[in-house]
Every structure is written in structure tokens, then in C-alpha cells.
Nucleic acid binder design. Sequence first.
RNA 1: GCCGCUGUGGCGGAAUUGGCAGACGCGCUGGACUCAAAAUCCAGUUCCUUCACGGGAGUGUGGGUUCGACCCCCACCGGCGGCACCA
Length: 841
Amino acid sequence: MHFAKHRWYRGTFRPKDSFLESLGFFLSTNIIMEETMAYNHKDIEQKWQQFWSDNETFKTVEDADKPKYYALDMFPYPSGQGLHVGHPEGYTATDIMSRMKRMQGYKVLHPMGWDAFGLPAEQYAMKTGNNPRDFTAKNIQNFKRQIQSLGFSYDWSREVNTTDPAYYKWTQWIFEQLYKKGLAYEKETLVNWAPDLMGGTVVANEEVVDGKTERGGFPVYRKPMKQWILKITAYADRLIDDLDLVDWPDSIKEMQKNWIGRSVGASVFFNVEDSEKQIEVFTTRPDTLFGATYLVISPEHDLVDQITTPESKAAVEEYKKAVATKSDLERTDLNKDKTGVFTGAYAVNPVNGKKIPVWISDYVLASYGTGAVMAVPAHDGRDYEFAKKFKIDMVPVYEGGNLEDGVLDSEGGLINSGFLDGMDKQTAIDTMISWLEEHGVGHKKVNYRLRDWVFSRQRYWGEPIPVIHWEDGETTLIPEDELPLRLPAATDIRPSGTGESPLANLDDWVNVVDENGRKGRRETNTMPQWAGSSWYFLRYVDPKNDQKIADEDLLKEWLPVDLYVGGAEHAVLHLLYARFWHKVLYDLGVVPTKEPFQKLVNQGMILGSNHEKMSKSKGNVVNPDDIVERFGADTLRLYEMFMGPLTESVAWSEDGLNGSRKWIDRVWRLMIDDENQLRDHIVTENDGSLDMIYNQTVKKVTDDYENMRFNTAISQMMVFVNEAYKADKLPAVYMEGLVKMLAPIIPHVAEELWSLLGHEGGISYAEWPTYDESKLVEATVQVILQVNGKVRSKITVDKDIAKEELEKLALADAKIQQWTADKTVRKVIVIPNKIVNIVVG
RNA sequence: GCCGCUGUGGCGGAAUUGGCAGACGCGCUGGACUCAAAAUCCAGUUCCUUCACGGGAGUGUGGGUUCGACCCCCACCGGCGGCACCA
């Protein structure tokens, strides 16, 4: 243990001293601490949090004349672990923006809530025999206490909770709209079946990591199962194109584009010889069709059984079996060596009538495109490897290169391609697509990597899907006026064992009979956690409305969200799903904007002091409760904003934290004496000595906050405080300005100083400071004198003097003369008010 | 492998438009205060060289453009994130 490095608070102990010395040390320290501890964070923070609560200071203002600002945090999953120091980073950022905007005259919507459905609560409940509802309620209570202890300016009257029936009524309502629009359908699909996760559950592709469940690390198998699917692919184009409308980091836009994976190409139909069957392939390179010397279809493809010749049957069956038992991991990462089997069938290349063999291979994915490709081994690396291994013909269709050396590129003109010969790539693509369309053997096609969204979860702790399956085969929605379909209050949640959710065990709930005596069974699947979080930002606008998702006028008033801050782990899925739902609701006329989140910011991660991700197992987790107790919420807020740019990951440092506390003390001492009185060097007159630095500070801090560069804003205020310490007199208006600028970051201390400066009613709606442009201009400027690009001297001259005069002064400078004396001046570059560079040789 | 971001003192970071690299903070060193220590206040702190004045080098590496490059261009190396046989 390094005691010197862990001076927690004003050095409370010194282990190397003898006992007697330590005793004396403690006694004197305590006396002094009592004298100088004018700023007591516990008292002040408690006092002002009470004040804000009593006065409903942060209740959202409804005022048609004020501009609006909607600052949103990604609402947390209230885990049993409690708050992590990473949470307050983003929360502080939106809080600073909210508090500044209020002071600038905006009406601000700044809410918080709970994404409270989810797997851990269900797992915990199963393990302990408790109800996830009680467990979740307890966790929310703890999260709320922790968040409130940090002094965020949330309007708690708008708190939402995804597990509240009054909330999920509308989640179910949205599902019903999706169903009515044909965007929700049931399908028997190959799903990721994890038999060991909670007695058997299905997880989405994105929740599978390395062939195992993301949570728990259980093995995953592929199994056909009837699932609810949402047709997100119908919105693929708009989800890409509308990214142009929002102010998001380029990296996130790029990730979403890649995830959707739009590629433009052509569908081409190949007739299977001696058969009525056709194989449709998708290709982005129709220009290379003359070079297609075989087809490959995925082993799972429907046509495999139909076209395989009797002689090949055994080999094909064996290959299919081998592939089916391989995990996705083995099919991709582990096996770079191409495998495959000839089906015995031949297809006809529509463009030249050539007979080409049809193979199956696992390098063709069933889930992408049509599950079949035309192989052009001369110009595609994968096809090249495959053809080389199985000794299949290669026909180059672009001039140049040697096939012995490997796959060829597609520069230059086409060859061996009939009517395409001599064309360049793009012309050939366009010409070929026209040809295919004219001859009815293909057409232009856009393909996506994005899959439809598997929306069912075999869980208890989620929104019930409001659907009944009747004995006659009909499927109906629960009528809207009967929503919400409540999650039954089960006391004993157990896996059904069949792969269905634990709801299947609850006979009273599952079995229904209609007025005609027709029997039915409720859908036992529940919704994924993504459901509730895909629209919660709409509910904050009108959280108590029991007639609608939210009032249209209020939605028009507040949307879109002006600032959305959260972790980059939600870069793709949450943000894509929320955008998808938003667009569906836009099409229904429910919401007024195409996009939900105008500006998005991803905060970086706060790493442990060893520069590694914080985790229990590494023992580097910092608990915010502990920091609030020892240093106060203001110190935590200040430190997290000062440690580096919001968007970057930075390592936690106890020393840095301590420094932040010391600076708050320093600001405090600048204005307040040991008797807790305003210091008498704070005066009403202004001797002008702080004019320049004050006005610079207001300008920079305002601008930096607006652009969320909190670290540099803080450093500018530090510079101002350093200057203020050197001044004899401190104009009261400047001190008030400083306190106002500090208020968004360290609100409790700012409130206390504001009241000590003689103001009543709190600082939250005090007017944001302004600066005087005329005080920013200096009469003289320092000009850098360089010789051959190296700084050799500096002169101070009147601002805006003529170029010629500046050049003359520069050349006359004594130090410059030393450097230029015996040399020829070849050139002089003069940048007024900045620099003179003399080139000699 | 592909796509994106990133690399600056002992440490976190700053330099917003191509114009003094290292603001601000931490740490460290020294001074004031104190019997003493802590705290506080003040000063110094990129590296090499020099008693000093000064000089030289320097923003991952190598090249280039420019009077002038952390900044723009080319190639490479390391770190982080995403995707991964996507036809």
C-alpha cells in the first residue's frame, strides 16, 4: 500500500511516525481541519438537494414562448451491482447542458427512468425463488438514491419504468401497430437455442459471442422454432439514408451503414439442366458473368435435395450432416480451407449457354442474398481458392495478369465477354443488367446484410406479446382497449422445459375461451429488452397519458431529442431499433419527426487506475457512493469532466480526484473566509485588472460548454481563479459570473456561494453571464520573430501596424541582427499581429 | 483480412483556421508560513548540454509539400473499436 499516494482527505494519517508523534499529529490536524473546513460537502449537498426538491426547481417548464431543449441520457438497467462511476460521466454531461440552457432561458426537458426488464432479474428470481418484480423495485430504489445523491437536475415527476403496466401497455400497443402494418410476422426459423441458459432460451444473433451466449457463456445450437419477427429490413434504405439528417459521430453512422450492409447488384437466374428448377443468385459483379464457371449454393438451400443426382446423394448428405454439426465459429474462423461437394447437377449460364457444375459449400451463407452465388474464380479470391482446390475451369474476363499468380483484379477492359468486350467495369455492369432485364433472366437488385429482427424471448420477465392463438388456427391481437395485457404475478417462476417461457406453466393465464366457447392459448413468448427502450424518450414527453402514447402537441413541442448521450456499446442495436420504431410511428402519424435523436454523443469509458476496464474480478472498480461520501458529489462531477474529453476513455486516478477537490476548496477560499463570511476583497467597484481575463473566460467557457469540451472550459476557469488570486480587489459581478459558470458542473457549491453572495431563490434560473467583446481586444500584441523558421526573438508592437513597418522593426531587432548579420536576407514573410519569418541563406 | 478512430513530458491532457508545442491539472523540486508536520500561498518543472547567458533536439517511425507542419500528403509501426467467407 502506498500511503503517500492515498492521501484521502487532507492527510489524515502518516504511518511512518512514531505513536506519540502520530498522536500529536492527529490532535493538531483535527484542530486545524475544524478551522479551515468551511466547505463541508455533506452539509451543503444535502441542503441544496432538499432545496431543489422542496421547490420543484427542475420540474419541466411549459412555456410556448421559450425555445426548447431536450437533453436525454440512455436510461440504465437497474442492476443489483448499483451505479458504476461510468454512469455519472454521461449524466453529468447532459446535466451541464441542461443547467446551462435553463440559465440561458430555454425550457428544458431532462428526464430519467428505468430499463427494468431483463435477464439478470429473471435469473436471480429463479435462483432464489423470489419475484423479479420485487428484486427490480429494490434495485431501482438503490439506483435512484445513488443518482439523486449526485445532484442531477432531472424532472423526477416524469420518471418512466418499462416494467410498469401503464408503460408497457404502449409497448404492446406499438407491437399491435407493427402487426397491423404487416411488420410483425411469425416464422419458423433457425434460432440460437441455448438449452443451458435458464432452462432453455433463444437468444438473438447479436447476443451470441464466439458461439456462446453473451451473458453466461452457455453453448448455442441452431434449432428451428416459431418466432415473432419484426420486418426491420423494410426500412433498411431509410435507416441508411436518413443518417444524413442527424448530427451523430461519423464512426456511429459508419457502423450503422456497415451493419445494414446495403449492396447494389443483380439477381441472375440460372436454369438447372434436365429440370424445371431455377437457381437465383445475387451478384454485385454482373460484369463478370461470362467468367462464371460454376455455381455454389449453401448446404441448407431448399434446392439441394431437389437437384442432387442419385449418384451424388450420399456425398451431399454426408457433407450436409458435417456442416450442420459445426458451429458458426468453426464454419468461419477455424476453417479457412475451402470444402464442398458436387451435386451432380449442371446449370446453364444464361449469357452464353454454357453448362456449368453446381456445387454446395459452406462458404456460401444461407442467410445472405439468395443463398447461392455464381462463382467467378478468375476474379474472386474465395472462388479462386475453391476452383483451384477442386480443379474447376477459370475464365479471365479482364485483360492483364496471370492466373498462376493468383486472383486477378478488374482493371482495364473486358475480354472473353462477347458484347461486353472492351468496356470498362462500370459500363459493363450497366450493360449486363440491361441485357439480363431484356432477356428476362435477371434484374437489378439491392441486397442487405441486415436481417429481420427476431422479437421473441422465452422469458417471463418481459412484456407479454398481446396475441392469442386459437384452436381453429386463427391468431388474434388482444383488442387495444383491453391493453395492457398484464404479466401474471407468478410466485414460482420455473423453466417450462419445452423451450417455451415460464409463462407456459401458468395454466390459468395461458388458456383462454372466447364468448363462443372457442378455446385459445396465449402467446407465451415475451418481448426482448430492446422493446421498452425503443420508444421511452417519447413517453417522457407525456408520461401519465392513459389515452395515447403521448399527446401530439407535446410531441411536436419537444421532439426531436436535442442531445442524446450514452455509451458506444449501443452504437448499433439500440439506436437502430429505436430509429426503426420511430420511423414506423412517423408513418402512422404518431410522431412528427423522421429521426428521434438529433445529436448523439458517445461518452468514453472510465477505466480502472491500471488502464483496464473496471471489473469485479480485476478489483479495480470504483464505487460512486464511496467518492460522494469522502469528497462529495461536486468533486466527482468536476473530476469526471476534467479528466479528459468526454468522448475519450480515460483511466481513473485517485490523485486527479483529490486535485479536483482541492480546486473546489481553492475557489471557496477565494471568496469565503474561515468564519464562513464573504471576504472583504470582494467589492462593488472594478479596477479593470481582471477585465480581459474575465471576458475571455466567459467567452471560452460558454463556447466550450456548447461544444461539450468540458475539460478545457474547466481549465479556463482555473486560469481565471489563478489570476483572481493575484488581484487586490475582486469585482462582485465577476465573482457572480464565475459562480454561474461553475453552477452546471458543481451545482451544490455554486448554490451555496450564490447565497453567500447575497442572492435568494437559487442559481438555477439566474441569467447566464455575457462578455464584452471590446474588453477582449488588446492594444498591443506580441509578435514572434523567426529566422529560417526558428524562433529567435519576440517583440511587442501596437496592434494592426502596417506590414512594412513590422518588417522594418523585425529586421532591426538586436537578436535578429545577430542571426542575420553575415547572411543574405532572401525573403521575409510577415503575418500581421502574429509572426515575421526571415529567410536567410 | 476489411472499415473506422487514435498515437504529444513522469502521468491525465491542451494547442478550435498551417504560425511561440506542452495551456490547465496531477506528480515532483524549491521558497514562504510553522517549534515541527499537514494544509495553504508563491515559484520552478519536455529532454540533452551549460556555473550561467545561451545552444541543440523534440508531437509513434521514415519520407514529402511549405518561408513555416502535432496539424496537409504518401508509406510503415503500435493501440482501441466495429465487421468478419456478405457474393
